[in-house]
């Protein structure tokens, strides 16, 4: 299963990097003569309303999402790990405050605060990335915190205190290496969700703008033709789905490996 997931993920990463080479057509080339052509020999997955090759656009569409999702995840891991370490190690008031904020953020479906934030700061891929990072950081923080709670009362931490080591040293050099595996697992799971959230936000046209071949955006733009040319919508939707499933399968395999 891990292998299947990894293959799917690798395929999309390859597409994102090398779509210029792989794609049979220029994904931006408009062909007014063949709008909404059904799948066939010349266009394997047909064309969209402007006559652009759907297959090429789906391949190229992997690029934006595979930039946004991992970057956002890394940012949220960095922020969330720091928050989780501080909350878990210091406990008390710091912990209570941080965790109540986390509760508040988690009580809403991610899409609602994201929509609000993007409406305020403006639509752009960078803002989508930052919004996802900010939304996911509390979730990461919670995972890290619970891992830290299990470690902080271990005797090696006491030994570090007896050396007079400061709390920053203890948090980052003594505890962090021992909570790395939950952080890594959380990270891979989060990438899947980030792909999904980025897709949703571009579907709502809050992020990247046309003519980008981004999957979420394409689904939004082409959904008017779903009755007469379903391939224009189905292809990017399936692409998104396979990427998310692929990432989750890989994450699952990784978690099992780390758990052993």
């Amino acid at each position: 299963m891990f292998l299947a997931g990894a293959i799917v993920v690798c395929f999309w990463v390859l597409a994102a990097v090398e779509w210029r080479v792989i794609a049979p057509y220029d994904p931006f080339a408009v062909d007014p003569a063949h709008p909404l052509a059904p799948p066939g020999w010349s266009h394997w997955v047909g064309t969209d309303d402007l006559g652009r090759d759907v297959l090429s656009r789906v391949l190229a569409g992997a690029a934006p999402v595979l930039v946004v999702a991992p970057t956002a995840t890394i940012l949220s891991l960095a922020g969330g790990t720091t928050l989780g370490l501080v909350a878990g190690y210091h406990r008390g008031l710091v912990d209570d405050l941080l965790m109540r904020v986390v509760d508040a953020v988690m009580s809403l479906p991610a899409i609602i605060p994201a929509t609000l934030v993007l409406a305020l700061v403006g639509r752009s891929s960078t803002n989508v990335l930052l919004a996802i990072a900010v939304l996911f950081a509390p979730l990461v923080a919670r995972t890290v915190r619970s891992a830290v709670l299990a470690e902080r009362d271990r005797e090696y931490v006491d030994a570090a205190r007896l050396r007079g080591d400061g709390s920053l040293y203890i948090m980052f050099f003594e505890i962090l290496p021992n909570v790395a595996s939950p952080v890594i697992v959380e990270g891979t799971v989060r990438v899947g969700y980030a792909v999904f959230t980025a897709g949703t936000l571009s579907f709502l046209q809050l992020g990247i703008q046309p003519p980008s071949p981004d999957w979420g955006l394409t689904v939004a733009v082409e959904r008017a033709f779903v009755q007469i040319a379903p391939w224009t919508v189905l292809a990017p939707a399936i692409a998104l789905a396979t990427l998310v499933v692929g990432i989750n399968l890989a994450a699952d395999g990784l978690r099992r490996t780390l758990a052993e």
Partner: peptide, 28 residues
């Protein structure tokens, strides 16, 4: 308070813990 003790005093008083499984940092 350990924090008020200063390095000299910390150095003079050390502890050997009970549980060999957690007494050393497993990542080091």
């Amino acid at each position: 308070r350990g924090r008020d003790r200063g390095p000299a005093l910390l150095q003079m008083m050390q502890m050997v813990f009970q549980n060999p499984d957690t007494t050393l940092n497993p990542s080091w």
